[in-house]
C-alpha cells in the first residue's frame, strides 16, 4: 500500500496537522511502510467473525441522564490560552 503525496495531504487535512510540502514525500514513505506491514492481516480469515469493539466483557455502566456537576466556568477556563469573560477566544470565524 503506497500512499501518494495527495493522499498524505488529505490525511493531514483531516487530522488538522500541518505538513509542509517539502515533508510530504518523507511522511508518505513512513506511513506506507507501516501500512505495508499491516497488510499481513489480509491473510487472517475473519469470515463470520463478530468484531470486538471494546476491552471488557462486562456490560457498560449506565447512569441517570442528569446534571451532576457545573458552575465551574473559572476552573474550566483556567487553562485556556485565550479565555476571558467565561468564553474561549478563537480566531474570527464569521466575516
Amino acid at each position: 500500500m503506497s500512499l501518494d503525496k495527495a493522499t498524505v495531504r488529505r490525511i493531514a487535512t483531516l487530522a488538522r496537522i500541518e505538513v509542509p510540502d517539502t515533508d510530504l514525500e518523507a511522511v508518505a514513505g513512513q506511513l506506507s511502510g507501516i501500512l505495508d506491514w499491516i497488510e499481513q492481516l489480509k491473510e487472517v480469515d475473519t469470515e463470520n467473525v463478530a468484531p470486538m469493539t471494546g476491552g471488557t466483557d462486562l456490560k457498560l455502566q449506565w447512569r441517570k441522564d442528569a446534571v451532576t456537576d457545573g458552575d465551574k466556568a473559572d476552573k474550566v477556563l483556567a487553562n485556556a490560552p485565550d479565555g476571558h469573560d467565561s468564553f474561549f477566544g478563537v480566531p474570527k470565524v464569521v466575516e
Partner: peptide, 15 residues
C-alpha cells in the same frame, strides 16, 4: 482552544 499550547493562524483551521 481549551488548554495547552496555541500557535496563531490565519483562520480557526489554520490555528
Amino acid at each position: 482552544v481549551r488548554f495547552g499550547l496555541r500557535v496563531p493562524g490565519k483562520s480557526l483551521d489554520d490555528m
